[in-house]
Nucleic acid binder design. Structure first.
Lengths: 227, 227
DNA sequence: CGCGGCGTTGATCTCTGTCAATACTTGTGG
DNA sequence: CCACAAGTATTGACAGAGATCAACGCCGCG
């Protein structure tokens, strides 16, 4: 774990503005481990052992429905943490997770996290903050699913991808379109069509490069009732 | 606050199996207050002052979309708590809430909750548990929205409404059908039709009374890929 | 009795999933 | 280096789900 890793950790929402001492107390003796693409980290229903901090790569969290399909709940990247909640539930992971790229992760043991919280109540507030953040994200996802059309959800997603307060910008899609489609609650075919629908609003796609001409216009489309 | 109220509190998921001393530390000096139907408790974007415990009645949590519509996120009943997360976010409620029936609530001040946590770390674990629980609920809602049809979501909901391990049962719908429809992410018209679709699976509706003939069959319908 | 809120029903239209065919990309082995 | 195979993305035709708009029925209430 080098200097860069520590910077990544310090910048994580989980540790918002805390010093290295706190970070060290939380991660305890955890050492970074490398996972190859497609490695399963934990499975829905398995005993909850740890939560994870991402140093590098992308991770996908999903649920397997009774009839065997996978529903993507979220996709996390370097600098984010996940599965904190599982440790305070009733002992079992409520979802599964695996890596979608090669990844380097820190797995923090549940028992040692509890010890850290007891030793230093500040850490409790960090965890409460992280959980609240995840909760807010899920709340927003529910709102989007219930109130917006597929192209509008895509517009929302692209908007959040861009730098704040830019009139126009270019981004590389963070992960494959098949995964993106399911993350947004639609089929890959619908994602293709959603991109087409966004052309009149100033969105161009080439491979995994997306050009947004007019953020204003994009946002107006996302929140209009006339799709 | 009478004996009954204390029993309600002790049974809340938030306080799972804790004694009155803990309950008292959490609620601090909060006194129950009566709200008439339709009273707003807090609004999206307002400074987060408190979280709530429901002693009586029903509460609806929703977000107002940019174009003015309301999306229902959850509906809570007596014995449940909500808005804990807002206190650990960045100072603002991410959603609005109001009462859908006359209600009696306990509002626990954010500042005093923080003091309680610092005084007794056990309380931190209670709050972490409550937040994890809410997060899990939202996760499940996302899964249902992404993977099931409207009638299937209704079937799921009815199933959870019933007593565990009964072959057949009758329930009164907990709230109006218009609200139920939006809670399930559909329009009232679609809810009517969803109920019709459930007749062949042994579901009969009369007013707000629902009869489930065969729970097994209902569940099979909810998790089949042939709607 | 008539009125207003709530729920249902019907007709229609749009969106999204499905199925199938076709590029295009990437990787592999000859 | 090329040919081929496999995975990934797009496109088209179609069917079904759900939204929308409008009308009607049903209660409860003044």
């Amino acid at each position: 774990m080098d200097k860069n890793d520590w910077r990544t950790l310090r910048r994580m929402p989980l540790f918002s503005g805390m010093n290295d001492a706190i970070v060290e107390q939380v991660i305890g003796g955890a050492r970074p481990r490398v996972y190859e693409k497609g490695t399963s980290l934990f499975t829905q229903g398995a005993p909850a052992k740890a939560f994870y901090l991402i140093l590098d790569g992308w991770v996908r969290v999903f649920r397997t429905t009774p009839n065997g399909e996978e529903t993507i709940l979220s996709v996390f990247q370097a600098g984010e943490s996940f599965a904190e909640g599982a440790l305070f539930l009733h002992g079992f992971y409520p979802a599964s997770a695996d890596t979608v790229t090669p990844a380097r992760l820190l797995a923090v043991d549940g028992a040692s996290l509890r010890r850290a919280i007891n030793a230093n109540p500040d850490i409790a507030f960090l965890m409460l903050g992280a959980l609240s953040h995840h909760l807010k994200e899920m709340i927003e996802q529910v709102e989007l699913l219930k109130s917006l059309s597929a192209p509008q959800r895509l517009a929302e997603f692209l908007f959040r991808l861009g730098p704040p307060a830019e009139k126009s910008f270019t981004v590389k899609l963070p992960f494959g379109k098949a995964l993106l489609a399911r993350r947004l609650g639609m089929k890959p075919e619908s994602l293709s069509r959603a991109f087409q629908r966004l052309q009149p609003v100033g969105v161009q796609v080439e491979r995994d490069e997306v050009i947004i001409d007019d953020v204003e216009k994009l946002l107006r489309f996302a929140s209009s009732d006339e799709p």
